[in-house]
Design a protein around this nucleic acid. Structure first.
Lengths: 125, 125
DNA sequence: AATGTGACTTGCACTATGCAAGTAATCTAC
DNA sequence: GTAGATTACTTGCATAGTGCAAGTCACATT
């Protein structure tokens, strides 16, 4: 069940923010609401990369920046993430479930397919 | 996404062993292959109970024993677990995927429904 | 040239985990 | 009915992991 890879407090949050939250850079992950420490974030990004879930890309326009992206393997986590998000929305009181969550509940497979297509496009550039 | 509840190495394994592995007692969880420490298992069981995922039941026949069971809330984790197990089976080389995993892949919703019914029966006794 | 930014590292206190051993309440067998 | 297992935990302690503040270093901006 691969809990060696993401059996911790942060790894799946990083993947979620990458997959659904539009975050790409170290700084963007840091500002993701939950307060992950910089050293922990750095270590998680390395581990996710070592496990083939995400990949590092130096930014073409700004040499300081690094953009993270989902790998093919990472993209296949979409169904897992969707189920966890739905579960969390049902059982935690995180205010009213926002639009995307209602779409997940109504059309789980559609949302997963959309995510897959979006990232497939990214990977073919 | 509730990673405060099961964002660690062991909590989801306990739920999985309860849901799909037929484990019910402390000792059975201990002998589940992965080597969780007794103190950690005790703490995880308490936390899962505190979060309403599982419940403790003293055994009617043997006063030494405690049987753990999934609550309604715990049962709703089935889709999450199924997706994680499928993902793990695809991406880790855990020998040949056993029968249950092939059934999960072929008929995800059927397996989830089966688990739900099985536990619903348990809960109505 | 001076200041700012982005992506990390480093140091250190604190917390969680792993391991071995111990305990208390049953059961079971003789 | 008592000695020896069983079950479900606790406790103590060394080690590993985490959180926080500060620092580094390669660019970028002004």
């Amino acid at each position: 069940m691969s809990l060696e890879i993401f059996g911790d407090r942060w790894s799946l949050l990083v993947v979620r923010d990458l997959m659904f939250g539009g975050r790409r850079t170290f700084k963007e992950f840091l500002d993701s609401g939950e307060k992950i420490a910089t050293n922990v974030l750095a270590e998680r990004l390395q581990r996710l990369e070592a496990n083939g879930i995400i990949e590092r890309r130096r930014d073409a326009d700004d040499a300081r920046k690094v953009n993270y992206a989902l790998t093919k393997k990472g993209i296949t986590l979409a169904p897992v993430l969707v189920e966890m998000i739905i579960w969390g929305a049902r059982h935690e009181e995180t205010a009213a479930p926002p639009e995307i969550i209602r779409r997940m509940v109504a059309d789980r497979d559609g949302v997963v397919a959309e995510i897959r297509d979006q990232w497939k496009k990214d990977r073919s550039l």
